[in-house]
Design a protein around this nucleic acid. Sequence first.
DNA 1: CGTTTTAACTTGTACGTACAAGTTAAAAAC
DNA 2: GTTTTTAACTTGTACGTACAAGTTAAAACG
Lengths: 235, 235
Amino acid sequence: MEERRYKHVQNFLKLQIQKGYYVVGSYLPSENELCSTFSITRTTARKALEELLKEGFIDRQHGKGSIVRERRKSLGLLNVKGFSEAVGKDVSTVFLQHPKPGLWDPAIHFTISETELNESCVHFARLRRVGEVPVMIEYNWLADTGLKGFPGIDFIEGSFFKTLSQHYHIEITGSEHELRAENATKNIAALLKIPHDSPILHISVKFHTSNNNFFIYSELYCNTENYPVGNSYHL
Amino acid sequence: MEERRYKHVQNFLKLQIQKGYYVVGSYLPSENELCSTFSITRTTARKALEELLKEGFIDRQHGKGSIVRERRKSLGLLNVKGFSEAVGKDVSTVFLQHPKPGLWDPAIHFTISETELNESCVHFARLRRVGEVPVMIEYNWLADTGLKGFPGIDFIEGSFFKTLSQHYHIEITGSEHELRAENATKNIAALLKIPHDSPILHISVKFHTSNNNFFIYSELYCNTENYPVGNSYHL
DNA sequence: CGTTTTAACTTGTACGTACAAGTTAAAAAC
DNA sequence: GTTTTTAACTTGTACGTACAAGTTAAAACG
Protein backbone atom coordinates (compact mmCIF):
# COMPACT_ATOMS: atom_id res chain seq x y z
CA MET A 1 0.00 0.00 0.00
CA GLU A 2 1.35 3.34 -1.04
CA GLU A 3 1.48 6.41 1.20
CA ARG A 4 -1.12 9.01 0.35
CA ARG A 5 0.23 11.91 -1.65
CA TYR A 6 -1.13 14.58 0.67
CA LYS A 7 0.30 12.68 3.65
CA HIS A 8 3.72 12.65 2.02
CA VAL A 9 3.70 16.42 1.51
CA GLN A 10 2.27 16.92 5.00
CA ASN A 11 5.03 14.85 6.63
CA PHE A 12 7.72 16.49 4.50
CA LEU A 13 6.66 19.97 5.59
CA LYS A 14 6.21 18.86 9.20
CA LEU A 15 9.78 17.55 9.28
CA GLN A 16 11.11 20.79 7.83
CA ILE A 17 9.31 22.70 10.57
CA GLN A 18 10.48 20.32 13.30
CA LYS A 19 14.07 20.58 12.11
CA GLY A 20 13.83 24.34 12.23
CA TYR A 21 14.20 25.00 8.50
CA TYR A 22 11.09 27.09 8.79
CA VAL A 23 11.16 29.20 11.93
CA VAL A 24 8.05 30.45 13.68
CA GLY A 25 6.63 33.39 11.76
CA SER A 26 8.01 32.42 8.35
CA TYR A 27 5.91 31.37 5.37
CA LEU A 28 5.70 27.90 3.86
CA PRO A 29 5.78 27.55 0.05
CA SER A 30 2.52 28.61 -1.58
CA GLU A 31 0.00 26.04 -2.77
CA ASN A 32 1.06 26.52 -6.39
CA GLU A 33 4.74 26.08 -5.51
CA LEU A 34 3.92 22.84 -3.71
CA CYS A 35 1.98 21.75 -6.80
CA SER A 36 4.99 22.05 -9.07
CA THR A 37 7.63 20.72 -6.68
CA PHE A 38 5.62 17.63 -5.82
CA SER A 39 3.75 17.27 -9.13
CA ILE A 40 0.35 17.35 -7.50
CA THR A 41 -2.84 19.35 -7.93
CA ARG A 42 -3.96 22.17 -5.67
CA THR A 43 -6.60 19.91 -4.12
CA THR A 44 -3.84 17.67 -2.77
CA ALA A 45 -1.59 20.54 -1.71
CA ARG A 46 -4.49 22.17 0.11
CA LYS A 47 -5.32 18.91 1.88
CA ALA A 48 -1.75 18.66 3.19
CA LEU A 49 -1.81 22.24 4.48
CA GLU A 50 -5.28 21.74 5.95
CA GLU A 51 -3.93 18.81 7.97
CA LEU A 52 -0.98 20.85 9.24
CA LEU A 53 -3.48 23.51 10.29
CA LYS A 54 -5.48 20.92 12.25
CA GLU A 55 -2.27 19.73 13.93
CA GLY A 56 -1.49 23.28 14.99
CA PHE A 57 1.77 23.68 13.03
CA ILE A 58 0.58 26.55 10.85
CA ASP A 59 -1.95 29.33 10.49
CA ARG A 60 -3.40 30.18 7.09
CA GLN A 61 -4.09 33.71 5.94
CA HIS A 62 -6.34 34.50 3.01
CA GLY A 63 -4.36 36.25 0.32
CA LYS A 64 -1.02 35.83 2.11
CA GLY A 65 0.05 32.28 2.81
CA SER A 66 0.71 29.61 5.44
CA ILE A 67 2.62 30.88 8.42
CA VAL A 68 4.48 28.65 10.88
CA ARG A 69 3.29 29.13 14.41
CA GLU A 70 4.08 28.21 18.00
CA ARG A 71 2.33 24.85 18.22
CA ARG A 72 2.01 24.88 22.00
CA LYS A 73 -0.67 27.55 21.77
CA SER A 74 -2.98 25.22 19.87
CA LEU A 75 -2.88 22.59 22.59
CA GLY A 76 -5.22 22.85 25.53
CA LEU A 77 -2.36 22.58 27.96
CA LEU A 78 -2.41 23.95 31.45
CA ASN A 79 0.02 26.74 32.11
CA VAL A 80 0.95 28.98 34.96
CA LYS A 81 -0.75 32.26 34.26
CA GLY A 82 1.65 35.07 33.66
CA PHE A 83 4.41 32.49 33.25
CA SER A 84 6.62 31.83 30.23
CA GLU A 85 4.35 33.74 27.85
CA ALA A 86 4.10 36.68 30.21
CA VAL A 87 5.55 40.07 29.44
CA GLY A 88 7.80 40.38 32.44
CA LYS A 89 10.03 37.39 31.79
CA ASP A 90 11.89 37.20 35.07
CA VAL A 91 11.14 33.53 35.08
CA SER A 92 13.67 30.88 35.99
CA THR A 93 13.81 27.11 36.03
CA VAL A 94 16.15 25.07 38.16
CA PHE A 95 16.66 21.34 38.02
CA LEU A 96 15.96 19.52 41.25
CA GLN A 97 16.91 16.34 39.47
CA HIS A 98 18.58 16.13 36.08
CA PRO A 99 17.29 13.44 33.68
CA LYS A 100 18.47 10.12 35.07
CA PRO A 101 17.44 6.48 34.71
CA GLY A 102 15.36 5.32 37.61
CA LEU A 103 12.25 3.51 38.68
CA TRP A 104 8.60 4.15 37.94
CA ASP A 105 7.41 6.08 40.98
CA PRO A 106 4.22 5.15 42.84
CA ALA A 107 3.54 8.90 43.06
CA ILE A 108 2.30 8.74 39.46
CA HIS A 109 -1.50 8.88 39.59
CA PHE A 110 -2.23 7.51 36.14
CA THR A 111 -2.07 3.80 35.42
CA ILE A 112 1.14 2.72 33.72
CA SER A 113 0.85 -0.04 31.16
CA GLU A 114 2.55 -3.43 31.49
CA THR A 115 4.82 -2.65 28.55
CA GLU A 116 6.02 0.52 30.18
CA LEU A 117 6.57 -1.15 33.55
CA ASN A 118 8.81 -3.71 31.87
CA GLU A 119 10.98 -0.94 30.47
CA SER A 120 13.28 1.25 32.50
CA CYS A 121 12.28 4.86 32.95
CA VAL A 122 13.88 8.29 32.97
CA HIS A 123 13.05 10.82 35.63
CA PHE A 124 13.68 14.51 36.06
CA ALA A 125 12.33 17.25 38.30
CA ARG A 126 12.31 21.01 38.04
CA LEU A 127 11.38 24.00 40.14
CA ARG A 128 9.93 27.05 38.44
CA ARG A 129 10.15 30.52 39.89
CA VAL A 130 8.90 33.98 39.15
CA GLY A 131 11.58 36.33 40.38
CA GLU A 132 12.74 34.74 43.62
CA VAL A 133 9.36 33.18 44.39
CA PRO A 134 9.01 29.46 43.66
CA VAL A 135 5.57 28.73 42.18
CA MET A 136 5.67 25.21 40.82
CA ILE A 137 7.42 21.89 41.27
CA GLU A 138 7.34 19.49 38.36
CA TYR A 139 8.19 15.78 38.48
CA ASN A 140 8.42 13.94 35.16
CA TRP A 141 8.73 10.30 34.12
CA LEU A 142 8.99 8.67 30.73
CA ALA A 143 10.03 5.33 29.25
CA ASP A 144 13.57 5.63 27.98
CA THR A 145 13.08 3.44 24.90
CA GLY A 146 13.65 5.06 21.56
CA LEU A 147 15.14 8.25 22.90
CA LYS A 148 18.76 7.27 22.31
CA GLY A 149 21.26 9.40 24.13
CA PHE A 150 18.52 11.31 25.87
CA PRO A 151 19.74 11.70 29.41
CA GLY A 152 22.79 13.78 28.65
CA ILE A 153 21.66 16.39 26.16
CA ASP A 154 20.59 19.89 27.05
CA PHE A 155 17.02 21.03 26.52
CA ILE A 156 16.51 23.31 23.54
CA GLU A 157 15.63 26.74 24.92
CA GLY A 158 14.99 24.99 28.22
CA SER A 159 11.97 23.24 26.79
CA PHE A 160 11.58 19.48 27.00
CA PHE A 161 8.77 19.45 24.41
CA LYS A 162 10.85 21.46 21.95
CA THR A 163 13.71 19.00 22.43
CA LEU A 164 11.36 16.10 21.84
CA SER A 165 10.14 17.72 18.62
CA GLN A 166 13.45 18.81 17.14
CA HIS A 167 15.63 15.89 18.22
CA TYR A 168 13.20 13.01 18.00
CA HIS A 169 10.32 14.43 15.90
CA ILE A 170 7.87 13.39 18.58
CA GLU A 171 4.92 15.70 19.14
CA ILE A 172 2.37 16.02 21.93
CA THR A 173 -0.99 14.94 20.55
CA GLY A 174 -3.09 15.14 23.67
CA SER A 175 -3.18 15.05 27.44
CA GLU A 176 -5.21 13.91 30.42
CA HIS A 177 -5.29 15.83 33.66
CA GLU A 178 -6.42 15.16 37.19
CA LEU A 179 -6.69 18.13 39.52
CA ARG A 180 -6.65 18.07 43.29
CA ALA A 181 -6.45 20.65 46.03
CA GLU A 182 -4.26 19.33 48.84
CA ASN A 183 -2.36 20.44 51.87
CA ALA A 184 1.33 20.77 51.11
CA THR A 185 3.51 18.02 52.48
CA LYS A 186 6.56 19.09 54.48
CA ASN A 187 8.79 18.40 51.50
CA ILE A 188 6.69 20.34 49.01
CA ALA A 189 6.12 23.20 51.45
CA ALA A 190 9.86 23.54 52.02
CA LEU A 191 10.60 23.66 48.29
CA LEU A 192 7.83 26.19 47.62
CA LYS A 193 8.82 28.15 50.74
CA ILE A 194 5.30 28.20 52.09
CA PRO A 195 3.96 27.21 55.50
CA HIS A 196 3.31 23.54 56.09
CA ASP A 197 -0.32 22.59 55.30
CA SER A 198 -0.86 25.51 52.91
CA PRO A 199 -3.35 24.65 50.18
CA ILE A 200 -1.64 23.68 46.93
CA LEU A 201 -2.88 22.63 43.54
CA HIS A 202 -1.76 19.13 42.60
CA ILE A 203 -2.01 18.31 38.87
CA SER A 204 -1.40 14.82 37.50
CA VAL A 205 -0.78 14.73 33.76
CA LYS A 206 -0.52 11.97 31.19
CA PHE A 207 0.74 13.33 27.88
CA HIS A 208 -0.02 11.41 24.71
CA THR A 209 2.47 11.66 21.85
CA SER A 210 2.65 11.06 18.11
CA ASN A 211 4.62 7.94 19.01
CA ASN A 212 1.90 5.48 19.99
CA ASN A 213 2.41 3.77 23.34
CA PHE A 214 4.85 6.46 24.39
CA PHE A 215 3.56 8.67 27.17
CA ILE A 216 4.98 11.27 29.52
CA TYR A 217 3.78 11.43 33.10
CA SER A 218 4.00 14.54 35.24
CA GLU A 219 3.03 15.41 38.76
CA LEU A 220 2.84 19.15 39.36
CA TYR A 221 2.56 20.99 42.66
CA CYS A 222 1.58 24.64 42.36
CA ASN A 223 1.37 27.51 44.77
CA THR A 224 -1.54 29.38 43.20
CA GLU A 225 -1.65 32.22 45.70
CA ASN A 226 -0.06 34.77 43.36
CA TYR A 227 0.01 32.84 40.09
CA PRO A 228 -3.15 30.87 39.31
CA VAL A 229 -2.95 28.07 36.77
CA GLY A 230 -4.59 28.95 33.48
CA ASN A 231 -6.07 27.03 30.63
CA SER A 232 -7.89 28.07 27.52
CA TYR A 233 -9.65 26.21 24.79
CA HIS A 234 -10.96 27.54 21.53
CA LEU A 235 -12.65 25.79 18.64
CA MET B 1 -22.60 39.35 -0.44
CA GLU B 2 -24.10 35.91 -0.64
CA GLU B 3 -23.75 33.22 1.99
CA ARG B 4 -21.36 30.47 1.01
CA ARG B 5 -23.07 27.34 -0.21
CA TYR B 6 -21.21 25.00 2.13
CA LYS B 7 -21.97 27.35 5.03
CA HIS B 8 -25.67 27.19 4.18
CA VAL B 9 -25.69 23.39 4.24
CA GLN B 10 -23.55 23.38 7.39
CA ASN B 11 -25.91 25.72 9.23
CA PHE B 12 -28.95 23.83 8.00
CA LEU B 13 -27.65 20.52 9.33
CA LYS B 14 -26.45 22.14 12.55
CA LEU B 15 -29.94 23.51 13.20
CA GLN B 16 -31.48 20.09 12.57
CA ILE B 17 -29.12 18.58 15.11
CA GLN B 18 -29.70 21.36 17.65
CA LYS B 19 -33.46 20.98 17.31
CA GLY B 20 -33.13 17.29 17.94
CA TYR B 21 -34.29 16.08 14.50
CA TYR B 22 -31.15 13.99 14.43
CA VAL B 23 -30.51 12.37 17.79
CA VAL B 24 -27.06 11.36 18.99
CA GLY B 25 -26.04 8.15 17.25
CA SER B 26 -28.15 8.63 14.11
CA TYR B 27 -26.76 9.19 10.64
CA LEU B 28 -26.94 12.40 8.62
CA PRO B 29 -27.86 12.20 4.92
CA SER B 30 -25.01 10.86 2.79
CA GLU B 31 -22.86 13.18 0.71
CA ASN B 32 -24.67 12.20 -2.47
CA GLU B 33 -28.08 12.82 -0.88
CA LEU B 34 -26.94 16.28 0.19
CA CYS B 35 -25.73 16.88 -3.37
CA SER B 36 -29.16 16.27 -4.86
CA THR B 37 -31.26 17.99 -2.18
CA PHE B 38 -29.12 21.15 -2.25
CA SER B 39 -28.04 20.99 -5.91
CA ILE B 40 -24.37 21.09 -5.04
CA THR B 41 -21.32 18.98 -5.86
CA ARG B 42 -19.68 16.52 -3.51
CA THR B 43 -16.81 18.94 -2.91
CA THR B 44 -19.24 21.40 -1.33
CA ALA B 45 -21.17 18.75 0.60
CA ARG B 46 -17.91 17.36 1.97
CA LYS B 47 -16.76 20.83 3.02
CA ALA B 48 -19.98 21.33 5.01
CA LEU B 49 -19.57 17.97 6.77
CA GLU B 50 -15.88 18.62 7.37
CA GLU B 51 -16.80 21.83 9.18
CA LEU B 52 -19.38 20.06 11.34
CA LEU B 53 -16.67 17.55 12.21
CA LYS B 54 -14.34 20.35 13.28
CA GLU B 55 -17.11 21.83 15.42
CA GLY B 56 -17.61 18.50 17.12
CA PHE B 57 -21.20 17.86 16.01
CA ILE B 58 -20.46 14.69 14.06
CA ASP B 59 -18.02 11.83 13.58
CA ARG B 60 -17.32 10.49 10.11
CA GLN B 61 -16.84 6.82 9.36
CA HIS B 62 -15.28 5.58 6.16
CA GLY B 63 -17.79 3.48 4.21
CA LYS B 64 -20.64 4.20 6.61
CA GLY B 65 -21.59 7.85 7.02
CA SER B 66 -21.68 10.87 9.30
CA ILE B 67 -22.90 10.08 12.80
CA VAL B 68 -24.21 12.68 15.24
CA ARG B 69 -22.24 12.71 18.46
CA GLU B 70 -22.27 14.18 21.95
CA ARG B 71 -20.60 17.51 21.33
CA ARG B 72 -19.46 18.04 24.89
CA LYS B 73 -16.83 15.35 24.48
CA SER B 74 -15.03 17.33 21.81
CA LEU B 75 -14.64 20.33 24.07
CA GLY B 76 -11.72 20.51 26.44
CA LEU B 77 -14.00 21.21 29.36
CA LEU B 78 -13.17 20.42 32.91
CA ASN B 79 -15.37 17.80 34.52
CA VAL B 80 -15.60 16.06 37.82
CA LYS B 81 -14.01 12.68 37.30
CA GLY B 82 -16.40 9.82 37.74
CA PHE B 83 -19.25 12.32 37.53
CA SER B 84 -22.09 12.48 34.98
CA GLU B 85 -20.31 10.18 32.52
CA ALA B 86 -19.58 7.64 35.22
CA VAL B 87 -21.14 4.21 35.33
CA GLY B 88 -22.73 4.41 38.73
CA LYS B 89 -25.02 7.36 38.09
CA ASP B 90 -26.11 8.12 41.64
CA VAL B 91 -25.43 11.73 40.86
CA SER B 92 -27.76 14.53 41.87
CA THR B 93 -27.95 18.25 41.34
CA VAL B 94 -29.83 20.65 43.56
CA PHE B 95 -30.44 24.33 42.94
CA LEU B 96 -29.10 26.62 45.63
CA GLN B 97 -30.49 29.50 43.62
CA HIS B 98 -32.82 29.19 40.67
CA PRO B 99 -32.16 31.45 37.68
CA LYS B 100 -33.08 34.97 38.74
CA PRO B 101 -32.22 38.49 37.60
CA GLY B 102 -29.57 40.04 39.76
CA LEU B 103 -26.33 41.98 39.85
CA TRP B 104 -22.92 41.17 38.46
CA ASP B 105 -21.05 39.72 41.42
CA PRO B 106 -17.55 40.90 42.38
CA ALA B 107 -16.76 37.21 43.02
CA ILE B 108 -16.33 36.78 39.27
CA HIS B 109 -12.60 36.61 38.59
CA PHE B 110 -12.65 37.40 34.89
CA THR B 111 -13.05 40.95 33.65
CA ILE B 112 -16.57 41.81 32.54
CA SER B 113 -16.89 44.14 29.58
CA GLU B 114 -18.54 47.56 29.76
CA THR B 115 -21.36 46.38 27.52
CA GLU B 116 -22.14 43.52 29.86
CA LEU B 117 -21.99 45.70 32.97
CA ASN B 118 -24.58 47.99 31.41
CA GLU B 119 -26.95 45.07 30.97
CA SER B 120 -28.71 43.26 33.77
CA CYS B 121 -27.57 39.73 34.55
CA VAL B 122 -29.07 36.38 35.45
CA HIS B 123 -27.62 34.29 38.23
CA PHE B 124 -28.09 30.71 39.35
CA ALA B 125 -26.23 28.35 41.66
CA ARG B 126 -26.19 24.58 41.99
CA LEU B 127 -24.77 21.95 44.28
CA ARG B 128 -23.65 18.66 42.80
CA ARG B 129 -23.48 15.48 44.80
CA VAL B 130 -22.36 11.91 44.38
CA GLY B 131 -24.67 9.84 46.51
CA GLU B 132 -25.13 11.93 49.62
CA VAL B 133 -21.71 13.54 49.39
CA PRO B 134 -21.58 17.10 48.02
CA VAL B 135 -18.57 17.54 45.75
CA MET B 136 -19.02 20.80 43.90
CA ILE B 137 -20.71 24.17 44.19
CA GLU B 138 -21.30 26.07 41.00
CA TYR B 139 -22.16 29.77 40.69
CA ASN B 140 -23.13 31.06 37.27
CA TRP B 141 -23.72 34.49 35.77
CA LEU B 142 -24.75 35.57 32.30
CA ALA B 143 -26.16 38.65 30.56
CA ASP B 144 -29.92 38.24 30.15
CA THR B 145 -30.12 39.91 26.74
CA GLY B 146 -31.37 37.83 23.89
CA LEU B 147 -32.47 34.87 26.00
CA LYS B 148 -36.13 35.80 26.07
CA GLY B 149 -38.14 34.01 28.70
CA PHE B 150 -35.05 32.35 30.09
CA PRO B 151 -35.47 32.58 33.82
CA GLY B 152 -38.53 30.42 34.10
CA ILE B 153 -37.94 27.45 31.84
CA ASP B 154 -36.65 24.09 32.99
CA PHE B 155 -33.25 22.83 31.89
CA ILE B 156 -33.34 20.08 29.26
CA GLU B 157 -32.11 16.90 30.94
CA GLY B 158 -30.82 19.13 33.71
CA SER B 159 -28.21 20.60 31.40
CA PHE B 160 -27.87 24.33 30.95
CA PHE B 161 -25.70 23.94 27.84
CA LYS B 162 -28.22 21.59 26.24
CA THR B 163 -30.95 24.12 26.91
CA LEU B 164 -28.83 26.86 25.40
CA SER B 165 -28.30 24.75 22.29
CA GLN B 166 -31.83 23.48 21.74
CA HIS B 167 -33.79 26.58 22.79
CA TYR B 168 -31.50 29.34 21.61
CA HIS B 169 -29.13 27.56 19.20
CA ILE B 170 -26.18 28.98 21.08
CA GLU B 171 -23.11 26.74 21.34
CA ILE B 172 -20.05 26.83 23.55
CA THR B 173 -17.08 27.62 21.31
CA GLY B 174 -14.34 27.89 23.89
CA SER B 175 -13.43 28.56 27.48
CA GLU B 176 -10.84 30.13 29.73
CA HIS B 177 -10.03 28.74 33.15
CA GLU B 178 -8.19 29.94 36.19
CA LEU B 179 -7.36 27.38 38.86
CA ARG B 180 -6.59 28.03 42.48
CA ALA B 181 -6.14 25.92 45.57
CA GLU B 182 -7.69 27.71 48.53
CA ASN B 183 -8.88 27.11 52.06
CA ALA B 184 -12.63 26.72 52.16
CA THR B 185 -14.52 29.69 53.53
CA LYS B 186 -17.04 29.00 56.29
CA ASN B 187 -19.89 29.25 53.80
CA ILE B 188 -18.33 26.90 51.25
CA ALA B 189 -17.19 24.47 53.93
CA ALA B 190 -20.72 24.27 55.33
CA LEU B 191 -22.25 23.59 51.92
CA LEU B 192 -19.64 20.94 51.07
CA LYS B 193 -19.90 19.51 54.58
CA ILE B 194 -16.17 19.61 55.15
CA PRO B 195 -14.13 21.10 57.99
CA HIS B 196 -13.45 24.79 57.84
CA ASP B 197 -10.08 25.56 56.15
CA SER B 198 -10.02 22.30 54.18
CA PRO B 199 -8.19 22.69 50.86
CA ILE B 200 -10.60 23.14 47.97
CA LEU B 201 -10.14 23.64 44.26
CA HIS B 202 -11.50 26.96 43.04
CA ILE B 203 -12.06 27.18 39.28
CA SER B 204 -13.02 30.40 37.54
CA VAL B 205 -14.43 29.90 34.05
CA LYS B 206 -15.30 32.23 31.20
CA PHE B 207 -17.21 30.39 28.49
CA HIS B 208 -17.19 31.78 24.97
CA THR B 209 -20.22 31.12 22.79
CA SER B 210 -21.23 31.15 19.13
CA ASN B 211 -23.03 34.39 19.96
CA ASN B 212 -20.20 36.95 19.93
CA ASN B 213 -20.01 39.18 22.99
CA PHE B 214 -22.12 36.72 24.96
CA PHE B 215 -20.22 34.91 27.70
CA ILE B 216 -21.06 32.74 30.66
CA TYR B 217 -19.10 33.13 33.87
CA SER B 218 -18.79 30.41 36.47
CA GLU B 219 -17.08 30.10 39.80
CA LEU B 220 -16.67 26.49 40.93
CA TYR B 221 -15.65 25.20 44.32
CA CYS B 222 -14.70 21.53 44.41
CA ASN B 223 -13.94 19.08 47.13
CA THR B 224 -11.40 16.95 45.29
CA GLU B 225 -10.69 14.53 48.09
CA ASN B 226 -12.69 11.67 46.59
CA TYR B 227 -13.51 13.05 43.15
CA PRO B 228 -10.64 14.83 41.43
CA VAL B 229 -11.43 17.19 38.57
CA GLY B 230 -10.52 15.76 35.18
CA ASN B 231 -9.73 17.19 31.81
CA SER B 232 -8.58 15.65 28.59
CA TYR B 233 -7.49 17.03 25.28
CA HIS B 234 -6.88 15.19 22.06
CA LEU B 235 -5.88 16.44 18.63
C1' DC C 1 -28.88 -24.21 4.95
C1' DG C 2 -24.44 -22.08 5.26
C1' DT C 3 -20.83 -19.92 2.70
C1' DT C 4 -19.00 -17.09 -0.80
C1' DT C 5 -19.45 -13.74 -4.16
C1' DT C 6 -21.26 -9.81 -5.93
C1' DA C 7 -23.39 -5.35 -6.22
C1' DA C 8 -24.74 -1.21 -4.28
C1' DC C 9 -24.03 1.78 -1.15
C1' DT C 10 -20.88 4.76 1.85
C1' DT C 11 -16.57 8.02 2.52
C1' DG C 12 -11.57 8.96 0.91
C1' DT C 13 -8.16 10.48 -2.46
C1' DA C 14 -6.81 12.78 -6.60
C1' DC C 15 -7.24 14.65 -10.87
C1' DG C 16 -8.40 19.29 -13.56
C1' DT C 17 -10.79 23.82 -14.24
C1' DA C 18 -12.68 28.37 -13.18
C1' DC C 19 -13.52 32.32 -10.79
C1' DA C 20 -13.89 35.04 -6.21
C1' DA C 21 -11.54 37.54 -2.80
C1' DG C 22 -7.69 39.27 0.03
C1' DT C 23 -2.79 41.19 -0.28
C1' DT C 24 1.01 43.68 -2.04
C1' DA C 25 4.15 45.99 -4.86
C1' DA C 26 5.01 47.93 -9.16
C1' DA C 27 3.19 50.86 -12.79
C1' DA C 28 0.44 54.65 -14.24
C1' DA C 29 -1.84 58.88 -13.48
C1' DC C 30 -2.11 63.19 -11.36
C1' DG D 1 6.40 63.46 -5.18
C1' DT D 2 1.99 61.67 -4.05
C1' DT D 3 -1.96 59.24 -5.08
C1' DT D 4 -4.49 55.97 -7.71
C1' DT D 5 -4.75 52.16 -10.55
C1' DT D 6 -3.36 47.94 -12.12
C1' DA D 7 -1.32 43.46 -12.25
C1' DA D 8 0.53 39.61 -10.08
C1' DC D 9 0.55 37.10 -6.50
C1' DT D 10 -1.83 34.61 -2.46
C1' DT D 11 -5.82 31.52 -0.42
C1' DG D 12 -11.05 30.40 -0.72
C1' DT D 13 -15.06 28.49 -3.03
C1' DA D 14 -17.27 25.60 -6.38
C1' DC D 15 -17.74 23.17 -10.33
C1' DG D 16 -17.13 18.17 -12.52
C1' DT D 17 -14.88 13.52 -13.04
C1' DA D 18 -12.74 9.15 -11.77
C1' DC D 19 -11.31 5.61 -9.08
C1' DA D 20 -9.90 3.57 -4.32
C1' DA D 21 -11.42 1.64 -0.17
C1' DG D 22 -14.53 0.43 3.68
C1' DT D 23 -19.35 -1.47 4.72
C1' DT D 24 -23.40 -4.12 4.17
C1' DA D 25 -27.02 -6.77 2.45
C1' DA D 26 -28.74 -9.28 -1.23
C1' DA D 27 -27.74 -12.72 -4.71
C1' DA D 28 -25.34 -16.72 -6.27
C1' DC D 29 -23.14 -20.84 -5.18
C1' DG D 30 -21.95 -25.21 -2.96
